[in-house]
Structure formats: structure tokens, C-alpha cells
Design a binder for these strands. Sequence first.
RNA 1: GGGGUCGUAGGGUAGCCUGGUCCAUCCUUCAUGCUUGGGGUGCAUGAGACCUGAGUUCAAAUCUCAGCGACCCCA
Length: 487
Amino acid sequence: MTSMAEPKEKAIQEKKAVLPGKSNFSEWYNELLLMAEIMDVRYPVKGLYVWFPFGFDVRKRTYAIIRELLDKDHKEALFPLLIPENEFMKEAEHIKGFENEVYWVTHGGKNELDVKLALRPTSETAIYPMYKVWVRSHADLPIKIYQIVNTFRYETKHTRPLIRLREITSFKEAHTVHATWDEAAKQVEEATRIYQEFYRRLAIPTIVSKRPEWDKFPGADYTMAVDTLMPDNKTLQIGTAHHLGSNFAKTFDIKYEDINGEQVLAHQTCYGISERSIAALISIHGDDKGLVFPPEVAPTQVVVIPIIFGKSDDVVTACRDVARRLKESGIRVELDESDERPGAKYYKWEMKGVPLRVEIGPRDLKNNVATIVRRDTGSKDTAPLNDIEIEIKKRFEMVHDSLYEKAVKSLEGRLIDCSTLDEVKEKIPTGIAKIPWCGERDCGLSMEEAVGAGILGIPEGKLGTGNGTCPVCGKVTSNIAIMAKTY
RNA sequence: GGGGUCGUAGGGUAGCCUGGUCCAUCCUUCAUGCUUGGGGUGCAUGAGACCUGAGUUCAAAUCUCAGCGACCCCA
């Protein structure tokens, strides 16, 4: 079996394919996180991971977009990590939803605490006792506050970096208070609009749908969710917005005095996004060569690579000049003057997802141009050195748009019309199944049971409307539900 | 919730079944020097590992148990 040639051939193969192919998504994902230095998955506690400086840079830039969008009419604040047991246990539904996942602090040093402290799995019960104090008059409303914090959930299922964590390190949660139910409902709409804009900036296509009754946030009137579709055809919930009605207001006694001097229960919403957004960013755009970033969030937007033959002082000078000019025009640029061969440099920066690569060699210099290579398509062209800044910025937009277009197509190509549950079951490994659903709880639960996958909900807009009959009760309906395997 | 596979340098692996030949294989990585430079340059020298704990044994990477951790499948 073993020939002399075999080890050598194998070695060559391994060298070419440092990263497992993306078709093997799970392996690709884990390896990429480590190789591209997003997260170190080797921290010795289950479900906890380390952000590398490079990954953290991506996180910072991604979260800068959320902040920018929210800061228009929200205020950022910070509430404590520890929640006393008595506050945490106030809302019955809420407890049911989270109590099996809560970490408890029971001791201070060697002394047992009189009141146990929960590590927040989410912050409603940390924030709302304060809202009770803050909300006095209708003039105090609306309140729109968000915070970006870590939260803890004792996950018993399979944990996965950025996707299912025991410490969510980047939980952006907004909590608003309104006078009326309708006003709160409008805020939920606004939240999903903001989230869609956020994901548009990341070139990630999304589907917004109302979660079925049995899958809503514990303690909410209803839940709107933002989902995207991952390369392995499972959906990832990457944002939620909950209408809390006055459920929590009742529990936490959040009331305001209206114009007529009456004490009225407030209405609330909360909505959140986590580092799952970054999981989606990496997974949707990445390829067999590594990361692919939209320019806006790429830690390095352009890498300049000198093509040197012997002593090419003029090439080096030209590269330094280009790098300096790009930097001066606000572009995040790296000049790779290291002692490696150009090919090795290409692979290295491709792994890191740098959107554009600028090569300058003697040939380019003679023509007074630079060669520009796009990370997303691999396409190569040249641009005059004189206008390099403009040419680069032009391409940034092109890269973003074509990333988004490609992602949209990929998602749309995996939306599958179905009319029977057998069909759903058969097609679901290949994407998201669309199926008529009357909207009744019993029918929905039987559908999930029969298919072995979840109902995400009835999507907003035309995706969620059509004609058909509910596969369980046979009632005619214009509701189209989407079903998928979920993370 | 149920079932399965696995844990060897920074990463990927061989060795484990049948204990001793292992101060542990190969690739990659890293360090130094020369060489090379439009898609992973070549050579030389060097660095780096048996998950943790207990047990069986004259002897454990190898067998047993427990813990921790990773992955896969089903519900």
C-alpha cells in the first residue's frame, strides 16, 4: 500500500489546503476562527472563548455600526452584572425561560450570601427595578437605553464559538419604555428596521418574522426575529425584538402619571443582537481561502505588496508612497515588506479577509500603474498610480455591493416552496422551506413534530404571503410560514 | 434529552488493537543563516508534544476507571 511517493504527495496536498473546504462547514468554521485569529477556541472551560486582538478589531468595527445606528435616538448605559435572586425571581414566565441556565454566585469568600446573586443571562431584571424609580411622569417617556455587555448562560447543548456560548461577550441589548402598547409596537418595528440596516452594512441578507407563540421570549407579548441562512443550510437567529406589553411593568411596578393625573402601567420593549452577527459575517462571506470582509469592517482594508527583483529600490519607494497616500486618505492599509515570497503573502492576507490587494512591481512601475486584486472575486486589474485613492474607494463600494448581491442570491436560491409536510421534510436539509400555515398553535406544533424542524414564523412582506392550505387542518390560508433547521 | 467517536509539539497527524523496540513518526509552524522573490523558493542547523487524576503492571502514549475538554449523529 505504501509507495515511496505517497508521503510526498500527501505533504503537497496538505500544504495547498491549510484550511478544510467550506463545504465541510463545521470543520471549516472552527479551523478558520483559529487560523485567521478571530477567536482562540482553546480556553479550558467549555463554552468560553478568547477574542484575539484581530477578532476583537472586527468586533469593534462591527459594534461601531450598531452604536452609530442606535445613538441616533438611544442612550448607552451600563447596569450591573449581578442580579439579586429576589428581583430575578419576580417574573414567572421569565424565570421559567431562564432558570435552568443561570449561574449563581452563592459565596463571598468563604461566607455564604444571604441573597444569592445571578450572573445576568439577560438584563431585564437588572434594569427594570431602576426603571421603576426612573419613570414618574408621561414626560419621562419614552426611555430608550441600550448597553453592550457580557451575559452568562449555562448552556447544556453543544456550545460553539460565537454561536452558542456560556458567556456571551458582546450582548447588545436595548430596553425601552413607552406610554402605550401601540407606541411600543412601533418601537419593535423600528428595532427590526435598524437591525436590517445593520446587516445590510455587513452585506448579510436577513429574514424578519414573527416567532410562533410557543417560541417567543419568556414574558413577552410577541417576538420578532431576524434570521439568516448559514452555509450548512441551518438558520441562525441574529437579532430579536420583543414587545413586552406591560407584563414586566406590572411585575416591577413601572408606572407613570398621565396628563389626567392617573397612574398608568408603562409598556416596554427589548431587543438584542450578539456576536452571532460576527459568526454570520464570517460564515456567509468566507471561502476556502479564509475570511472575506466587507471593507467597512475589515481591520485591514488594503494590503500593498511590493514585487521585488534583486535590488528594486524604486518599487519599494513606490509602495511606501502608495501606502502613505492611502493612509492619509483614511484607508486602513498595510505595507507587507516582509522577507516572504509574494505568493506566500497573498495567501496570508487572503486568510485575513483583506478586501483589496495592491501589487506594484517593475512592470507596473514602467506603466505608472498598480495591480489591484479583489479578495471576493479574485479579479485582477490595474489602476493609474496617480488616482490610486479614488480607484481604491470605488472598488470598496463594488466589493460591498457584490458581496451583498451574492449573499442575497445564495439565500434566495435556498428558499424552497413546499405544499406538503413530506416535501418540507425532504427539502429542509437544503435550505428554508416555505409552507402554508393557518397560524394555529396545534397545527404548527404538529408540523414541527412531523418535520423535525422549527417554524421560524410568518415572514414580513411578500415572503410570508401566498395561497394554499394548511397541511394539518386543511384550512385555506394566505399565510406562508418558513421552517428550517436552526442553530 | 438519547447514542457514538475522540484527546500525542502552536496547528494537522503516525504509533494504541497485540504494554517494553518511543529520550515518540511525518507535514506544517517557529528561530538563525545563506539563497530566492508577478501565487506557498530551496538548503542547512536548531526549537517544540503523549489532557488531568487514580488504578493494573517489573514496565503505560498504549490497558481500566473517573474527571475535564472536543467533535458527530438522533430527538
